[in-house]
């Protein structure tokens, strides 16, 4: 039984070696030069693809980094806008007629009513 198994294995291996030899002979017949350049071209394509893929990854990483910067700046812009809105409101409160009348009273500014703003012509 074991002997048969050994013989069978040997037979398969010798067949594989023969097939490899035949392929080698075929390649030699068809021209090794062409195959060499084909191989080089294939490697070049692989290299280029790898390069472009890496560039793509780099571009994506950069875009993410820029995205974070944009988000940060937008946050700052938002805060500044909020501050502007609050300050505009405070200006409006302080310049409202009621506030001015009160300020005129409190600080005795002696501001004139509208009808006395213009000098009368004789």
């Amino acid at each position: 039984m074991e002997k048969n198994l050994f013989q069978n294995t040997q037979r398969v291996l010798s067949k594989a070696a023969k097939t490899c030899r035949n392929i080698g002979e075929d390649i030699a017949k068809k021209g090794g030069f062409k195959i060499f350049w084909g191989y080089i071209l294939f490697m070049l394509l692989i290299g280029l693809s790898a390069f472009f893929l890496m560039a793509l990854v780099q571009a994506k990483v950069t875009s993410f980094q820029l995205g974070y910067q944009i988000a940060k700046l937008e946050k700052q812009k938002e805060l500044l806008l909020e501050e502007i809105y609050t300050l505009q409101y405070e200006i409006a409160v302080l310049t409202s007629p009621q506030s001015l009348i009160q300020a005129n009273k409190n600080w005795e500014l002696e501001l004139l009513p509208p009808e006395e703003w213009i000098e009368e012509k004789p």
């Binding site: 909020e82 809105y85 609050t86 505009q88 409101y89 409006a92 310049t95």
Partner: peptide, 9 residues
């Protein structure tokens, strides 16, 4: 252009 109503945060 004087603000009469506005929204603040």
């Amino acid at each position: 252009g004087i603000i009469l109503a506005t929204s603040i945060p």
